[in-house]
Structure formats: C-alpha cells, structure tokens
Design a protein around this nucleic acid. Structure first.
Lengths: 209, 209
DNA sequence: GGCCGCATCCATCGAAAGGTTGAGGTGGCC
DNA sequence: GGCCACCTCAACCTTTCGATGGATGCGGCC
C-alpha cells in the first residue's frame, strides 16, 4: 500500500495539531501541508501532490470550506476532499456533497475511524460518518417533510422577528394564509409553536440566520 | 518555575490530541489526564493533583462545561478552570465567568498565546482572549443596553423554542418572573415580541445559534 | 377523463400564551 | 441613608396565535 499524502485545512491551530498528531501515528499517512484558510487550501491543493484534503467548513473569514471544496474538486486530477466539521445540519451536508466532497465526518469521530475514512476516501470511495449516513437516510425516507418554498419564505420572516400581521403585509397575503402555512410547517417539523419551529429549522439549516 | 499540571476536558479526541501536542511542547507543562465528558472532568479534577483545567463548554451529551466549571471551582483547593471554546457569545462568556472560570479563550487562539494564558491562569490571574476582553469592555461601556445574565439566560431558552411555561420550569421560576425578564429584554433591545428579540439578539451575538 | 395529492389561499373562533402594570426584597455603590 | 439595578412574583387583560374547516388550481397517475 502506498502512502497517502494529506493536506489539513482548518482555521484552528489546535485542531490542525490534533489532526497531525493523530494521523502521523499511522505509518501509511504523510501530512504534506496545513492551510489556515480556505484560499490557502485551494492554492496548496493545486501546487502540491496531495491525495486527500481534510477540509473544515467553518473558517473565520473569507472563503468558506464548501466553496473551497467545489473549487478543488473541479480541477482534473484533483485530490479527494474529506469534509471534517462540527455540525451535521442538512444544508452543510448536502452542500458539501454537492460541491464534490468524497466524505463527511464529524470532529468527534474517534481517531481510528478517522484513519479508516481517510483510506476509504483516498481509494475514491465515499466515506460518511454514521450520523451523517443516518441523516441522509432520513431525508430519502421521509421526503414529505421537506418544506415548500412558500412555507420557508414565511418561516424565514418569522425567524426575523415579524408577526403574522407583518408577514401578511410583506407577502401580500391574509393573516389566515400565513397561519395556514405555519400550521403545515409545524406539522412537518414536529413542533407546535413559532419559536420552536424557528429553533429546529435553524438547527437543521433550513433557514438563514 | 514549577511545572503546571494540566487536565484537558473536551469531547473531541482530535482537539484533545491537538492541545496535548501544543502544550507538551512547553517544558513547564505536564498533561496529567484527559476527560471526554464533563462528568469525567469533575471526577478527575477531584482525584488528581491538577493546577489548571482546560475546559470546553459544548459536550455532546450530559453535563455541560459551565456546570462542570461551577462544580469544580466550588471545592476548596480547586484547580483553576480555563475555558477554551469556539463561541464568543455573551451567554457563554458570562455564564462561564459566573461559574468561576479563571479565563476564557477561543479555540482559534495561537499556541503561544494559549501557553501564556495557561501560565496566567495557573498563577491565579484572569486570562481573557482579546475578543473576549473587547466584548466585556463593550458591556461596561454601554450598561443600559447590556442584558443581565438572567435576562440572557431566559432569552437563550426562548431562542431554543421553549414557551414561558417551559422556561419557568427549567429555571425554577414562576411564569411571571420569566415574563418580567422578557419585558426588560424587549425594552433594552427595542423590540416588542419574543421572536423579534431573538432575531436582534442573535444578530448582536448575545445568544447562541 | 377522473382521481388524488399537494400547494396555495382564506374565514371563523376559542383559548392560552404573552404582554402590561405594579410591587417587594436584595445587594452594591456613592 | 438614598439611589439604582437586578431578581423575583401576582393579577389582569388582550392580542395573537394556533386549531379547524374548507375552497381553488395544478400536476401526476391510473
């Protein structure tokens, strides 16, 4: 088995040090570089001979990890990108996969599972953490839970602090219609109040914050 | 200078490895143990001879870092607790200080600053990251706009979708008290409903999520 | 064509949750 | 002592919210 050449992209020095410590314990891994920003990760992935990029999604400023993933994987002969982040919201996961990520893991993954995932990704097979796989299963299993465009539109305004009255004016609807949309939202999200709906919707990344 | 004995409390193995790697580079530091849960951190802080606990606030499940901090620092001869987390919202910061934390740093702190902060904490002096210090300065500069700890606590639960009834049960208060806090929050934030309060509070980074 | 599911839209109504007012107790600070 | 901010609570009132029920139009499917 040949050695896997790695690039670590994370804005936290501590996390980079942790990844390095964990991964360099594996004889078949070699960390060739670290990137503290998404831009730097894109540049290094192009310059160096890298097999797998470990990519965080949240960077303090500048380009995000998702966009960096898309940019890197768009090139021919590009390395695999294994997303390694803290959050498991639907938006993040779907966007990352859409952007061409080969895998998606959470940062609380045990070191040995992480190493396995890196090898899987290096081989070109998709590597998803168990929680992530579960989320994707849930999505395809219950497609009815998806909110309609109009429902999301209303819910977004609720999250911005508007009352039903204000929302109805903004969208040229009657209050009754606004309430109707919200009732459907509650049913789909399994909650029974506007604040709870906003909470779970943001947790799932359904609406903007 | 005597050596500083450290306990690392974080649910992410990778972060623990990173902290260990960074801190063991310092000749005057010794990592005596790691804790993957808040409960374990409390136990180890009591059993072992520890000078400083590096404490995360978010643990996947069970006790939170804030409560663990309070429990640890309540004992006599307790170690100093240095909070090391990702978020710099007012809730987290104030609650941690209230719980007896000696310092508060963000995880993107450079290794050398981290080492300095650990020494400062070990000496019993408070160690705050620059962003944290700035937030606290802003609070004292504009005291009328600042929310009290209790108000933020209530507002945080509102943002998580709880009703006044649920909040009162969670905090062992009457509903009247919860409403009273919220009225003050509305006045300070210049809004007139719970959802609007959540919206502006999150925009200002007063609460999490 | 006829049926069904779904999204969008609307009216009515009762109740509960939320918001207002007022007020007491504590502790810090000048 | 006097002032102020914070935390706590009770009782009242009302507005908003959520529940219920129903209408329309569109698209897919048998």
């Amino acid at each position: 088995m040949s050695t896997v050449r790695l690039l670590l992209a994370d804005d936290h020095p501590i996390v980079r040090a942790g990844l390095r410590a964990v991964l360099e314990g594996e004889p078949d891994f070699e960390v060739v570089a670290e990137a503290p920003t998404a831009e730097r990760a894109v540049a290094l992935a192009g310059e160096l001979d890298v097999d797998v990029v470990l990519m965080d999604l949240q960077f303090g400023s500048g380009m995000g990890g998702t966009q960096a993933t898309a940019t890197i994987t768009a090139r021919s002969g590009a390395p695999r990108v294994l997303v390694l982040t803290t959050y498991d919201t639907d938006v993040d996961i779907l966007a990352a996969i859409e952007a061409g990520a080969t895998g998606y893991l959470l940062k609380d993954t045990p070191p040995d599972e992480l190493a396995d995932a890196v090898r899987t990704a290096a081989a070109g097979r998709s590597a998803l953490g168990p929680e992530i796989a579960q989320r994707l299963m849930d999505r395809v299993r219950r497609p009815t839970e998806a909110l309609s465009l109009r429902e999301i539109e209303v819910l977004q305004l609720v999250a911005e602090g508007l009352s039903n009255q204000q929302i109805s004016e903004r969208l040229f609807l009657s209050q009754a219609t606004v309430k109707s949309h919200l009732v459907h939202v509650y049913a789909k999200l399994g909650v029974d109040s506007r604040t709870a709906a906003v909470a779970t919707a943001t947790a799932r990344g359904l609406i903007r914050r």
